[in-house]
Every structure is written in C-alpha cells, then in structure tokens.
C-alpha cells in the first residue's frame, strides 16, 4: 500500500514536470547535423545502397520486394487516384478560380512542403495548404481522412515527381522548436509495446518484423500518398503515422495534428535532396 502511494506520488510529481517543462534538448537540435548523421548512419548500415536510392523506401534495401514492386508499377493501383485528383485539381471553385491560383506549376510543388509559416507559427503541410486554398476561395475544407484530399495529393505528388525534396531549414526559434518537437516525437517510446520510431527505423532497420522488412527513415516522405493494399485505397503519410502508433499500442493522434505535422517537418528536412517519386504502392 505504501509502495503504491509512493509510486502514485512520484508519478504525479513527475507529470507536473512533464506538463510544465519541455525538454531543454529541444532547443539545441541542429537540423543539418541531424541530416548528415542520418545519411552517415544509413551509408554504414547499407553500404551497398546508394543514398539517393532510399527514395524507394524499403524497396531500396530488399531485392525481392523491389522486384515485386517494379512489376506492380506496370499497372499501379494508385493510377485511378491520380486521374481523379487531376480532375479535381482542374475543376473550378464556385467563384470561378481554382487550385492553380494557390499552387504554381500545375501543382508540382510538393517538394516545398511542409514549411514553417512564421506568421501562423506552425508547420504547413501540403494537405493543410490544400484546405487553406479552399477556405480562401469560399469552399469548405476537406476531411483529412477522406479520399478527395488523398486523390488531390496523389495528383500533386505525381506532378512533382523527379523534383528533389527542398524543405527550407528552420530559420527562427519557433521553426527550430517545431523541428525539435518532430525529432523528439520520432525518438520517444510510446505505447504498450514501448516502441519509438527509432526502434524500427534506426535500431532494427533492415531486419524483419514478421514478414515485413523495416525501412530506413531516409526517404520516408518521398513517395506519399500511397496506395496500400491493406487500406485498399490511397492514404497520406499521417494515416501511416497513426497506424504506426496504433501498432505499438499507443493512442494515435489526429491526422494533421501538431504532433504529426512537426514529425513530417523533421522527416522531410532529413530527406532533403532525395527525388520525389510518389504516389507509390505498398503492402
């Protein structure tokens, strides 16, 4: 009984610290050093893989899966989503304007997302920008877990193919804090299985978890949205984040939550320079 009381008191005390003081190390994160460290880590872990090939995700490090994937690319299941997304992108809003008033180059702009908006003080993802565009033109925002937004993003990813990821380095304290929050999320163990993103994608990367090969984080953002056979539809990166959290027994955060946008910002900066090749197909 005494032990239980003591434990409860310790937990209550530490929770106060958790809620009141973010970790001081957040302020010291250096994005370019992180990017260099990650590239160096994977170069040592997978010496046979050219770093640029990590744009293909797990198919860069698993020859058998790569062979299957290349065959799937002959008739890719995301093709319908790209076509539908192209039609949606071209369709005018009620005010006569359209997405091309918000996005240059016919939507081939994915390489610049996400970015940190200094005025709003938050990370803006492509999905958020699509809804901002709609709101600016008097249209209702689309649900983040819906297919209309996923198909629009699929088209824009397709239009952006071949462009290297070009996420701006965090320039302000607020932007660095968002990046650091993403890094912290990536490195923090969660859920009943006590897994961090780093558990699978750094510590155990390249090993198998049941039948699946664990992918590298370099290139994690290059190919979204993705048609997953498990989902039987196209879905975005945040849907996958939520799935990862659920798989380790953690309650997932909502798509486009601060947590997931900061995580995307962090991961995207690390993949700077890699070619976009979305949308893609995954199991």
């Amino acid at each position: 009984m005494l032990r239980t009381t003591l434990l409860a008191a310790l937990l209550a005390g530490s929770l106060g610290v958790i809620l009141a003081h973010p970790a001081s190390a957040q302020a010291t994160a250096d994005p370019e050093t992180d990017r260099r460290a990650l590239r160096e880590f994977y170069a040592n872990r997978f010496p046979q893989v050219d770093l640029a090939d990590h744009k293909d995700g797990v198919y860069a490090i698993d020859a058998g899966a790569r062979e299957q994937w290349l065959e799937m690319e002959d008739f890719p299941p995301y093709e319908i989503a790209v076509d539908e997304g192209a039609e949606l992108f071209a369709a005018p809003f009620a005010n006569g304007q359209g997405y091309d008033h918000c996005f240059a180059d016919d939507g081939a702009v994915k390489q610049n997302y996400p970015y940190f908006d200094e005025q709003r003080g938050e990370v803006i993802t492509l999905e958020l920008a699509i809804n901002d565009c709609r709101s600016a033109h008097g249209e209702a925002p689309l649900p983040y877990d819906g297919q209309e937004l996923a198909t629009l993003a699929a088209y824009m990813a397709f239009a952006s193919r071949g462009n290297p990821v070009a996420v701006d380095a965090p320039a302000s304290d607020a932007a660095r804090a968002a990046y650091a929050a993403g890094k912290r999320f990536y490195s923090t163990r969660r859920g009943q299985l006590n897994f961090a993103c780093t558990s699978c994608h750094i510590q155990l990367v390249g090993n198998r978890l049941r039948a699946e090969r664990l992918s590298a984080s370099l290139g994690h953002v290059t190919h979204w949205p993705v048609y997953r056979f498990k989902w039987e539809e196209v879905g975005g990166l945040h849907k996958r984040f939520a799935e990862c959290n659920s798989q380790v027994g953690a309650e997932p955060f909502p798509e486009q939550s601060d947590e997931y946008r900061n995580l995307e910002y962090f991961l995207s900066y690390l993949s700077n320079g890699l070619e976009l090749n979305g949308p893609a197909t995954r199991k």
């Binding site: 970790a23 460290a37 990650l38 160096e40 750094i202």
Partner: peptide, 27 residues
C-alpha cells in the same frame, strides 16, 4: 495500464535524446 504509460512518459523525458544517430565524421 495508465500508471505504466505515465511512468513511460516520465522516463522518456530524457531517454529520447540518446536515440538519434550522432555524426562521426566532421562537418
């Protein structure tokens, strides 16, 4: 379960800082 998840939150306050790779070569 909730108490264990709180203990995890407490431990992760600092533990997360050691999990990301550190560059070995000079910049």
């Amino acid at each position: 379960l909730a108490d264990a998840s709180l203990a995890q939150a407490q431990a992760e306050q600092t533990a997360w800082q050691d999990r990301f790779p550190v560059a070995r070569s000079p910049s």
